[in-house]
Nucleic acid binder design. Sequence first.
DNA 1: TTGTATGCGTTATCAG
DNA 2: CTGATAACGCATACAA
Lengths: 327, 327
Amino acid sequence: MMPEKVTIADVARRANVSRQTVSNVLNSPDLVREETRERVRQAVEELGYRVNQAARRMRTGRSRLLAVRIEQTQDGMNVFDRFLHGLTESAAKAGYRVILYSADDDRSEIATFDDLLGAYEPDAFVLTGTHYGDVRTSWLAERGLAFVTFGRPWGMPEGGDHPWVDVDGAAGTAAATRHLLDAGHRRIGFIGWPEGSGVGDDRRSGWVRALGEDAEDSEAGVLERRTDGSAAEGEAAARELIAAGATALVCVSDSVALGAMQAGPVPVIGFDDTPVAAAIGLTSLSQPLSEAAVRCVRVLTRLLEDDSPDKPDHVLLRPSLVIRRTA
Amino acid sequence: MMPEKVTIADVARRANVSRQTVSNVLNSPDLVREETRERVRQAVEELGYRVNQAARRMRTGRSRLLAVRIEQTQDGMNVFDRFLHGLTESAAKAGYRVILYSADDDRSEIATFDDLLGAYEPDAFVLTGTHYGDVRTSWLAERGLAFVTFGRPWGMPEGGDHPWVDVDGAAGTAAATRHLLDAGHRRIGFIGWPEGSGVGDDRRSGWVRALGEDAEDSEAGVLERRTDGSAAEGEAAARELIAAGATALVCVSDSVALGAMQAGPVPVIGFDDTPVAAAIGLTSLSQPLSEAAVRCVRVLTRLLEDDSPDKPDHVLLRPSLVIRRTA
DNA sequence: TTGTATGCGTTATCAG
DNA sequence: CTGATAACGCATACAA
């Protein structure tokens, strides 16, 4: 039993109206008399009619597709899959589907934009992993294409303003630091990423801020190490910091924190609340990824369906501290 | 600068041929004289032409879309994201894109099939998580729709034969068991899932087989516990088995193995080589997920593009043992 | 080999 | 409020 295609014409026939009326019921219900509307709705139901997106797209240029890049899983300690899951669900609720692509760097990602646009015409893009000098956003913006980034536009002084959703890393590390201060620690170290990483610098700044509030000065710059983000460097950094007198550690990521835990029985807090953190009992900062996904979709639907807002939407969410054995 | 849409007519004009000729160059190059073909190809290049999938789909009924369900991340110790990444990449190489959907159970997944089919007409579905009494496959098969499962059709005696790709779990646990036997262990326990899980029973069978080969009999059924798959039950099971004399443990999953590791300093081997295993030094069995993804795409392209094979393709891949601290 | 005509399912325009 | 007609971009049958 092949699934017989039911078109708008079938519905029209069934409801004794013209095709156009059916279309109106679907797209501009207000134009149609209540009674007719109901009759059409019933026919749609009975026949199991669904709009053919290809045909609609030909006519309107809208595909109801959101394009998202699926990230490389490096050491697997990332959190992107949860975001993607949330995105798929909230997009579906809004009548959109997620289409995936992969790319190795910004340049090849832009080439993929071009490809996708020609072939599938996604209505919008969701970008992750924003960074300094991100050429993807300007490419999209120049062409007037709809997009939102999960991540702020790091260092974009002039004009480069676009819709984004992000999690407040500084608020997270500040909360973590305060948690340690409350536990009586006064020499709290930070293990970060190389300077120039937007996310890394943001997370660091929360630690600095919380220390300034409450503890002895001059910790920053002293009880601090930068790493490439690996567990190995995290462990080395932790040893140094402990030797320098740190009694607790805030880390820029769970990877680094995992390493730091090997350095000794010192309280450690990670960032991202990855499955690894849960498995090893690592206290960590959890990003509200479902919520972020919901907000991304909301930003986009506003952009696509309502009259485009004058000011791009900016959404900053707060992570929450998940307390486990390590702190 | 809006991206101006370039159509087949533009290309035709540029190359001084008819639209039909351009279409022929694209779809049946043999029909066109070498010289003309080259001229058209050049025009395509210069104009940056891409076929409009919506239009093509209207005409041919093919969308070049592969639909995949994005799984719930329970405790995050799964491996689906790596499969999905591989799938996206190999699909792209074959000229397909992946479209995502989510569903809570078989019934709602089937409803989604219907939806998707009406709206986006994916050319095929990739199903994961096959299980006994899987109604999804029969629904698709009844309608003559193209699909492949990542996972064997567990318990499908009559007719229910469809293309699949899978990883040989029994081969994996057998290899793990042999590894422990080689290390001198003679009392090797197994921690599994409830009976009736296709994957779980398969993985268990490898342990049984390897023991039968080489070690004392009667281990099976004695040095064995079934769990719900949680780390907590894994730990409890491990304690019992160790008390019963087990000197090493083979586990059905990394989750369970994680728990088992807490039970004592006994060699433990997990399954799936999740990021957690890497993080905690757990020896585990690694599924060749990229390869599986490639094979899924290959099976589908054969189904879609070549004349459909009489016999559905079946591909069974071997996992590999990643040896770390725990064994 | 190349050109011409047609239709896929929708929606927008415009007249009733 | 409803109905006819055209158009979106492509691929095919057919004729040249």
